[in-house]
């Protein structure tokens, strides 16, 4: 079972990395959160019966850990503004304005609160509102309303 779990997680580790990038601001904290999510996934693994896709199941555990269970360890809060590799913009892929816009967008997303981040994260991952609402425990309508509010909020962050 352990071998299966590690293989599954290894194949889907990007989900965890992306959550860690959104919710932490330096490398130590990133690794710390990654480890906690792995532990929580492993603890819950016996209850995973393969009814859902492994990755679908991972979103819930990873976000729950980041939003609720994870306690920032002291040594990791100090350093800030760690440019994660995920957020690094490759200059050759976009023109200058687009590149600048993306940079600002990523920065704005990182400034959001924990719950807002979860919504944006699932939106970016192309999850539908049904899955978003089920993961957070809110109604689908409220998930949509909230997402619109976040868009507005991002707009004010981008154009102060």
């Amino acid at each position: 079972m352990e071998h299966q779990f590690v293989t599954d997680l290894q194949n889907n580790q990007n989900i965890v990395h992306k959550v860690c990038t959104l919710y932490t601001s330096n490398k130590d904290a990133h690794n710390d959160l990654f480890q906690e999510i792995t532990i929580q996934l492993w603890k819950a693994y016996p209850k995973f019966r393969g009814e859902a896709k492994f990755s679908t199941w991972m979103y819930r555990v990873a976000l729950n850990t980041a939003i609720t269970l994870y306690r920032k360890s002291k040594r990791t809060i100090k350093t800030q503004d760690y440019d994660s590799i995920i957020f690094k913009i490759k200059a050759d892929e976009y023109d200058a304005t687009e590149e600048e816009q993306l940079k600002l967008m990523y920065k704005a997303v990182k400034q959001l609160g924990d719950i807002d981040k979860a919504l944006v994260f699932m939106y970016l991952e192309d999850k539908d509102y049904k899955e978003i609402s089920e993961t957070l425990g809110i109604s689908e309508v409220n998930a949509r309303v909230k997402m619109n509010r976040i868009k507005k909020k991002l707009r004010t962050i981008l154009n102060p």
């Binding site: 352990e2 290894q10 906690e36 269970l69 306690r71």
Partner: peptide, 13 residues
Amino acid sequence: IHNMTWKKSSSIV
């Protein structure tokens, strides 16, 4: 990843 599964949780629970 395998090593991580052996670590202790430090969650609020």
